[in-house]
């Protein structure tokens, strides 16, 4: 049955009753969540908790993109997956777990590698995009696709004991390219397979990505200045927030005279792609 976009069903009222009690959410906020669609790119360490909480809290439509299969070495952090799904598609494993938790969340899976040929088509149908990927080339790709489509981007990352969280392309704030106009050297792009990560670090960041999605979907985010949240297992305090620049008029993609007006070859741009392990991982 089609749900009325302005009314919660009795089942929704029962299930989300503890959120309806909060004045900042209430029926209006819960309806906004249900009428929102979110694309989570990557169902690994960040995407696992993020997608799980988005489905739990009542996001209406959830897309999941991943081309990878579950490996045993994923399970210390990718808690959406199971031992039984090792060797099988991550998006199918993810959607199986999510559907156990909630049948109210409409899910769509994309068992593909996001690239310049498919990114705009896939991203285009969503209100909010979550970057839960693990390499620079895909991060630039997602950023540019979001800017070109006018969609806010909730970007998280986690390596070793550290995590970072930023919302890009929203409310006068910067995009990923405004902050990082030049890609890092290929040997500098550590990902979790090469340098490791403590399981709960992407857990924390992935949960916070889900929180940022709620803020965006309910309209709260407009009151906030652009910032980057830094997290480290090692630091005291564990969290710090730094203030970011606004959108840069000279940005190649979101600036006043953009030079990037359609998606480019991001593997060439970065000198390394999503499947390349950095051959000699050096300092950073």
């Amino acid at each position: 049955a089609q749900k009325a976009s302005d009314r919660l069903t009795n089942e929704e009222i029962r299930r989300y009753s503890r959120q309806l009690l909060i004045p900042e959410v209430g029926t209006e906020g819960q309806l906004k969540l249900r009428n929102s669609s979110v694309l989570v790119v990557g169902t690994g360490g960040l995407g696992s908790p993020c997608a799980l909480y988005l489905a739990a809290m009542g996001i209406g439509r959830l897309g999941l993109v991943d081309h990878d299969v579950v490996d045993q070495s994923n399970l210390h952090r990718q808690v959406l997956h199971t031992e039984a799904s090792c060797g099988f598609s991550k998006v199918l494993s993810a959607v199986t777990s999510i559907s156990r938790l909630s049948s109210l969340c409409e899910t769509k899976v994309y068992d593909v590698l996001l690239d310049s040929t498919n990114a705009r088509d896939i991203i285009g149908g969503y209100d909010i995009v979550v970057d839960a990927t693990d390499n620079a080339a895909t991060r630039y790709l997602i950023n540019d696709a979001c800017v070109l489509s006018g969609i806010p981007l909730v970007s998280g990352s986690a390596v070793r004991l550290d995590g970072q969280l930023t919302v890009y392309n929203h409310n006068g704030g910067p995009c990923y390219r405004c902050l990082f106009p030049t890609p890092p050297a290929p040997d500098a792009m550590a990902n979790c397979s090469e340098t490791g990560v403590l399981g709960v670090v992407p857990g924390v960041i992935g949960c916070l990505q889900a929180m940022e999605v709620v803020k965006l979907a309910t309209g709260r985010k407009v009151n906030e200045d652009p910032s980057m949240l830094l997290f480290s297992y090692r630091s005291q305090p564990h969290f710090r927030s730094v203030k970011l620049r606004g959108r840069k008029p000279t940005c190649a993609v979101c600036g006043d005279e953009p030079t990037v007006t359609k998606l480019i070859d991001y593997v060439a741009f970065c000198g390394a792609g999503p499947n390349d392990d950095a051959p000699q991982w050096k300092l950073l």
Binding site: P183, A188, K243, L244
Partner: peptide
């Protein structure tokens, strides 16, 4: 500065 390093001065992005 090497690409990928952010500089923060007293809690703010140095471009602020």
């Amino acid at each position: 500065l090497r690409p990928g390093i952010l500089v923060i001065i007293n809690g703010s992005d140095w471009e602020v």
